[in-house]
Amino acid sequence: MSELKKITYREALKAGIREALLNDDRVFLMGEDVGRYGGAFAVSKSLLEEFGEDRIMDVPLSESGFVGAGIGASLAGMKPIVEVMTVNFGLLPMDQIVNNAATLLHMSGGQLNVPVVIRMSCGIGKQLAAQHSHSWEPLFAHIPGLVVVSVGTHEDARGMLHTALEHPDPVIIFEYTSMLNLEAEIQIDAGHTDISRAKVRREGKDISIITYGIGVYKALEAAKRLSEQGIDAEVIDLRVLRPLDEDCFIKSVSKTHRALLVEEAWASVNISSEVSARIMENAFYELDAPVKRLGGSEVPIPYPLHLENASVPQVEDIENAVIKILRP
C-alpha cells in the first residue's frame, strides 16, 4: 500500500493542471479570470505567477470567441485546457463545441483532430438560483464526437486531466462546484484515470446504484447506511458519460439483478434514461425488479435552500429508494 494524503477536491484539480503544464510545453490554460483573479473558484490560484501569461491566459468575456480559439489552437498543434467558468455559460460556446470541435474530424474525412480539453464546473452550488445551478452533462453527452467525463472523486480530480489531454479528440470535463472544499484521502502515487472505463466504487451483491459526479459520494454514503440494515449495495461511478462503458454496468446488474440510477440532472432525457434503455436492451432477463431512476426535479433550480435541496436526490432519497426496491 502506498502512502495516503489528505487533499481537497480543489487542490486535486489544481495538482492535475500543474502536472499537465509541467509535462508538456504545448499545454496552456485559458479562461475568464484564471490568472489574476486566481480562478473563479481559486482552482488556478498562483499558477499565473508560476507559469507566466503565455501559459495562464486571462481572456475577455466571450465564450464563443475563446472556446473557438482553443479549438483552433488545438487544430494547429497546441494542447489547450479551456476553462469555461461554469457550465451555466456553456451554451454560449455550444455552437463552437458542436459544430466545430465535435464535427471537424468527421467532416474532414478523418484528417483533422481536435485535441482540446474543455473544463466546466457544474451542478448546484450554494443557493445560486436558476441561472447558476445547471447540471447539463446530458446536453453534452448527447453529441457524438465529444468525449464527456465527470469528476466524481478526488482521485479523478487529480488523474483525469492528464488522460484527457492525451486523447486525440475533444474532451469535456465536468467538475463540481459544491465539492471543491471537500477533503478526502488519496494515494500519493495514484496514477492517471482511464477515461474509457466506469469504475466500481463499492462492491455489493443486492443492488447496483449507478451514478456519476456529485452522486458518487452520496451513493457511497447511502450504501454505508444501507449496510447497517443488511443491504449490500454496489456503487458504480459511470465516470465517462460518452461513450458509456456499458460492459461495466451490465455486468453489475447481471450480478445484483436490481438497479437504481441516480443523478442531479433533470430526470427526463438524462444519462439515466440512456443507461436504463441499455439495461433493457442487454440485461432485461437478468432483472428481478423494474429499474428505478432518481433524477433532478424538473424545475429551474430555486434559490431558497429547502427548495434547492428538494430539487435533487439526497442521501436519504437514495436510501429510501433502495429499500423500496428490495423490500416492497
Binding site: 468575456l61 451555466n88 455559460f89 454560449l92 443557493q127 438560483a129 436558476a130 441561472q131 447558476h132 429551474p300 430555486p302 434559490y303 431558497p304 427548495l307
Partner: peptide, 24 residues
C-alpha cells in the same frame, strides 16, 4: 417569490425586467 434571490429581481408591474445573470 423568493425563487430568484439577489441576482434575479423582477417586477413586471414596475416594468423592471431583472435581474439577469448571464453576462450580456
Amino acid at each position: 417569490r423568493g425563487r430568484g434571490g439577489s441576482m434575479h429581481l423582477f417586477d413586471k408591474e414596475k416594468n423592471f425586467f431583472g435581474g439577469n445573470a448571464i453576462v450580456s
